[in-house]
């Protein structure tokens, strides 16, 4: 391929960097965003701590040691104990697994739904109006009250059907997912509308490429960057929503605590053991903050107008 030669001729000064791929460019831009880099580091650290922590700190989060209740931090219990003598660190680690799992799964559901609606609305004119009116209607729903109502209504039947833990997990993840896809759908639709008129899509259509193939091969890879930014914001949003639900006492049950639930339980003992509020709250805040910084960095890195500068 003479491309290498010609690029040598036209841009000899670029030297060794001429073979950079798109993702290499994105990574280089991302690396220059200090906040995003620190955010990514913190997020990876929290994920690792939550994933591997219980292997190192092997105290059972459910173990009641009533003689050691309301203790301050010590070597045995680095974050102290609660009013029933359970180890706070073990609970925070176990809660983090659920909180992060909820964040990821709910974000995936919202992303798939949002992308699907966005691509369909952008590519197929006939259903565009209908889908966008649906999106508008979802945006007008009062989300927090609605989430609370749905959980109240279906908590018991789902817990009976799937068991206490899986039931509530499915319910929380599902309702957060189906109530937070609208922004993604709108952004994706806008991008698809512009893309479908571009020459490469017309070219693909003119050589008889099937519509499904055009969408998966030509449209989807080009809307990947807004989707990725939506994904990071989606995780942050899902973690906060889940914590808010648990904090209002309508999320996960006390025997299956998440960060929000730990905060809710700890709030009643705030004058005795303020650490019980501090640690889970700090965990939620740090996670959300780091994810938001990653999102900020990704947005800048994926925007070609900013990347060149």
């Amino acid at each position: 391929m003479p491309a290498a030669q010609s690029s040598d001729l036209t841009a000899p000064s670029r030297g060794l960097q001429r073979h950079r791929s798109l993702w290499m460019d994105v990574w280089l831009a991302f690396r220059n965003h200090t906040g995003a880099l620190v955010g990514a580091g913190v997020f990876i650290a929290i994920s690792l701590a939550v994933a591997l922590g219980p292997l190192i700190h092997t105290v059972d989060p459910h173990y009641l040691d009533i003689l050691a209740k309301n203790e301050g931090p010590s070597l045995k219990h680095p974050m102290g104990t609660d009013n029933l003598g359970r180890d706070t660190l073990a609970q925070v680690l176990a809660g983090g697994r659920i909180s992060l799992a909820v964040g990821f799964t709910a974000m995936m559901i919202a992303l798939v739904l949002g992308t699907l609606v966005g691509v369909l609305a952008g590519y197929f004119r006939q259903i565009d109006g209908l889908l966008m009116r649906l999106t508008d209607m979802f945006l007008a729903l009062p989300l927090l009250p609605l989430l609370l109502v749905v959980i109240m209504l279906f908590r018991d039947s789902l817990r009976a059907a799937f068991g206490p833990e899986t039931g509530i997990f499915l319910l929380v993840v599902f309702i957060i997912g189906i109530t937070s896809w609208m922004q993604t759908a709108r952004i994706v639709r806008g991008d698809v509308l512009a893309l479908r008129e571009r020459e490469f899509v017309t070219a693909a259509r003119s050589i008889g490429t099937r519509r499904r193939r055009i969408i998966t091969r030509h449209i989807l890879p080009n809307v990947l960057s807004p989707i990725m930014v939506s994904a990071t914001l989606g995780i942050a949003n899902a973690i906060i929503t889940e914590s808010a639900l648990s904090f209002l006492g309508l999320g996960f049950p006390p025997d299956f605590p998440t960060w929000g639930r730990l905060l809710f339980d700890g709030a009643n003992f705030i004058s005795v053991t303020p650490e019980r509020v501090l640690w889970p709250g700090l965990a939620i805040s740090l996670t959300v903050l780091s994810v938001n910084y990653i999102g900020d960095g990704l947005r800048d890195a994926l925007d070609p107008r900013l990347r060149g500068a």
């Binding site: 906060i240 914590s243 808010a244 705030i270 509020v277 501090l278 700090l282 959300v288 903050l289």
Partner: peptide
């Protein structure tokens, strides 16, 4: 923007 009000309130 990131720290939820239920944590700032308790703090």
């Amino acid at each position: 923007f990131s720290v939820p009000t239920f944590f700032t309130g308790l703090l």
